[in-house]
Every structure is written in C-alpha cells, then in structure tokens.
C-alpha cells in the first residue's frame, strides 16, 4: 500500500534554515546539510527546501547546497524558490534534486509549467500555491511573492481555478500552503484542502498549520491528502518524527516502516 508522506520543509535563506510566523520574522534554525541528514535518519519520507528569498529579490541565488544535500541524502527531495526558467530547473535537477517546485514565476508565466513538463517530465514538476481565505469574499485566493511581506500580493485568481489550470499544464504534484494557518500550529486547513482535493487528480500535499500529532491524522483522514508538510514542529522538536509515525500507525494510517534486512 502507498504510504502517506511526512515531509519536513526547510526554509532556506542565505544557506541557512530559517522559520518565520505567517511568512514573517525569520529566525535561523541551523545549517542545511546536517539538518537534512538528521531528518532522513529520523524517518522523514521526503524533504522540501524552499529558498524564500529567491523569488522576491530578483537575483541569482547560490544553489550549490543542492548538490551537497544530494551527496548525503537517500530520500527524495524537492527544491523550491527562484526557479524562473527551464534552465534554472535543469541546473537544480542536474545537482541531484528529484523535483523542482515553482510558485510566483508560474503565476507570472503559466506556460513555464508546460515547458518544465515537456522538458523534464511530469514527475519533476511541483507547483506550490499560496492560498489565503478572503473573509470578505468568502473565497480562497492565490497570493504571490509571499517570501517578502512588502511585495506579497493577491493575484486575483481563485485557488480552485489555478489548481485546475496547473494540472492541465502538466504539474505532477501540488503543494497547497494555507496562509491563514501558516506558523500558528492550529491544525491544517481541512475545509480548504478537502475542497481542493475534489478537483486535484495529482498528488496533493498539505502545508501550513501543523502543531500536534493529531493534526496529521486529521488531514490524512479528512482531506485525503497524499502528504503533509510541516516546519516548526519538526525544527523545534515539538513533534519527533518517529513518535509521529508510531502515533499515525496506531491510528490506522499507512506509514512507511523502517527497513529491516533479513539474514539469509
């Protein structure tokens, strides 16, 4: 049976792992490679590295850390942030990343998703979507440039419409960041994720809001997401991954077991 994925997300700025609350006030958590190794050893199913400065700052960002991670990590990982072209994506994949994730650049140029799909195949192409619940319109809306508070803006697109479009253009996976929940550890946005699940035929990853073990259970069980992404609860040691996996298994969620070699 296919296991539900537990995915620590490491926000990267200037080669360090950082974390902010509601996308703001970033604090340094630690160095990338040892943290990545630690998560792989603890049983994380996959890692996402999100270069939060890249999309906003309009500059070439040093990505040599991708190759350093690929040399030591034996679980899949995805790199997000600042990938604006097929060339950018190619460089990241050549350094050993398994997937690349695009967000703001895909909103500026939706055709980018098609070109990435045609060049590297659907399995490499992840689209990240920052979605905010607008109290006034009572709708979920897509935001861009969320790495920089000053430039963060509403794109005028409804989240469900964008989810449909990116699938048509060849996205192989969608990560839905529910901005209202991000960093506040009150649980994933089950209502929104369920709504998006209904229109999403590729793997869907929940992001934003994990604070307790049962939040993972709730989002797998109620929103039927393929994976759940979290940052601060892992970085701050609030939820140790082995303990989370045991808890979820006990609740009947299919979770990857550790490999035990048999002796012939």
């Amino acid at each position: 049976m296919l296991a539900r994925r537990i995915i620590p997300c490491l926000d990267v700025r200037e080669g360090k792992v950082v974390k902010g609350v509601k996308f703001r006030n970033h604090e340094i958590i630690g160095d990338i490679v040892p943290l990545a190794e630690q998560y792989a050893q603890q049983g994380a199913d996959e890692l996402v590295f999100y270069d939060i400065t890249a999309s906003s700052d309009q500059r070439v960002v040093d990505k040599s850390w991708v190759s350093r991670i690929a040399q030591v990590i034996d679980i899949p990982f995805c790199v997000a942030g600042g990938i604006k072209s097929v060339q950018d994506a190619g460089r990241i994949l050549e350094m050993g990343a398994d997937k690349i994730s695009v967000n703001s650049p895909a909103l500026a140029d939706p055709e980018l998703i098609t070109r990435l799909h045609d060049t590297f195949g659907q399995q490499c192409v992840v689209v990240g979507i920052d979605s905010y619940f607008n109290e006034q319109s009572q709708q979920y809306e897509v935001y861009q440039f969320t790495g920089d508070e000053k430039r963060t803006q509403n794109t005028g697109r409804l989240t469900a419409d964008w989810v449909l479009e990116v699938q048509q253009r060849g996205a192989g996976e969608i990560v839905l960041n529910c901005m209202n929940q991000d960093g506040v550890r009150q649980g994933y946005d089950i209502a929104q994720l369920s709504q998006i699940r209904a229109v999403c035929n590729v793997p869907l990853i929940a992001s934003g809001g994990a604070g307790e073990k049962h939040h993972f259970y709730d989002v797998y069980k109620q929103a039927d997401v393929d994976g759940a992404l979290a940052a601060s609860v892992f970085h701050k040691g609030i939820i140790p991954i082995p303990e989370l996996k045991d808890f979820l298994r006990a609740q009947g969620i299919i979770i990857r077991d550790e490999f035990v070699q048999t002796t012939a």
């Binding site: 996959e46 192989g172 996976e173 999403c200 590729v202």
Partner: peptide
Amino acid sequence: LRLPHMGWNTVDPVEQ
C-alpha cells in the same frame, strides 16, 4: 487514485 503514483509503496519480491 492519483497519478503519478508517487511516494513510498511496499514491494514483494517473487523470490528473495
């Protein structure tokens, strides 16, 4: 179910 089939799945070797 979703495609691509993406993630960790169990494998049963026909012979070990």
